[in-house]
């Protein structure tokens, strides 16, 4: 005689199984959405068109690399907004899985899109090395071998987290899905106009932070050779007033900017998150955002 024994299911493992199943289902749906893939193709294309050319605005190619990620961020937000908007349907509150768990599952399902951005950041690093470096500054303070630092490239990944949080927040709180298209488009493409946020006083509050930051270095009468030799310089006719400016790139600034972005992501997630746990996200978001802004202000000379 044979007996069949069923393995006892522990009380704790059942919700984990449900969450895993939800994550897999939502991830499949998000990855089947053509928008992030089309936007990834556009971002890669935009990245490939950037190459240093003689006579370019000093640092133009270096500055153009990071904003090329904008279409991808827009695509990620759209892909995440769709399942979060589905949670507004009346049937959802009656589902046997609590809302917190469903929200968590949707967020975890967006991780492949973040992984896509990690791959994009690696591609950016490879592309810059393939080009032999980008150009920054003008004689006598110039380099033709500038590479984005790890801190600057990490911003792309943190921006993907912000894109997920923004899509979740707008998807959950906007009554009509079609209204998300213009909203997400304007939000992402306005912040991609990097020179709007280029001033040292504004750049800590930017979303897509593009370095170098331009700092005053001297008047038109200043001898550039008297300035420190490791400064990357820009002078007339590329500066207002014709004086000398320093093109300043800082890994510390980029890391603190990541902290600011994580704060924004937490605040946006708080908008999408169900009531239990929302205060924790709000508090964490405020602390991170304030720390990020203060850190950037301290770092900027």
């Amino acid at each position: 005689m044979s007996t069949t024994t069923a393995r006892p299911v522990s009380a704790g493992s059942a919700p984990a199984t449900v969450t895993r199943a939800l994550v897999v289902t939502e991830a499949r749906r998000m990855l089947r959405n053509p928008v992030p893939w089309a936007c990834l193709a556009l971002s890669v294309w935009a990245l490939w068109t950037v190459r240093p050319e003689p006579g370019e605005w000093p640092g133009s190619s270096y500055e153009s690399i990071v904003p090329a990620v904008t279409p991808l961020l827009f695509g990620i937000s759209v892909a995440v907004a769709v399942p979060f908007h589905r949670a507004r349907h009346d049937v959802a509150p009656a589902a046997p899985v609590p809302e917190v768990r469903r929200t968590l599952a949707r967020l975890l399902a967006a991780l492949p899109l973040v992984a896509m951005t990690v791959a994009y950041a690696v591609l950016v690093a490879w592309r810059e090395r393939d080009l032999g470096g980008l150009w920054l500054g003008m004689e006598p303070g110039r380099t033709t071998e500038a590479f984005h630092t790890t801190a600057e490239l990490s911003q792309l990944v943190v921006l993907a987290l912000v894109a997920v949080a923004l899509g979740a927040a707008l998807g959950r709180r906007t009554s009509r899905l079609v209204a998300l298209v213009p909203a997400l488009f304007v939000l992402w493409f306005v912040v991609s106009v990097y020179w709007l946020f280029g001033m040292p006083s504004v750049t800590p509050f930017s979303v897509i932070q593009v370095q170098p930051v331009h700092l005053p270095a001297g008047t038109p009468a200043t001898d550039p050779l008297s300035l420190p030799s490791d400064w990357l310089l820009v002078g007339s006719p590329h500066t207002t007033g014709g004086g000398w400016e320093r093109q300043w790139v800082s890994a510390a600034l980029a890391w603190w900017h990541d902290v600011w972005l994580l704060g924004i992501a937490a605040l946006l997630l708080a908008v999408a998150w169900p009531r239990p746990g929302r205060r924790v996200l709000l508090a964490a978001g405020v602390v991170l955002a304030v720390a990020g802004v203060v850190g950037q202000q301290v770092v900027i000379p």
């Binding site: 079609v178 298209v181 213009p182 488009f185 304007v186 493409f189 306005v190 106009v193």
Partner: peptide, 17 residues
């Protein structure tokens, strides 16, 4: 110019939506 172009596309998308 680019800000106005974004504005034109964004506002047009809003009207169509």
């Amino acid at each position: 110019d680019v800000v106005l172009a974004i504005a034109a596309a964004g506002l047009a998308a809003t009207v169509v939506s």
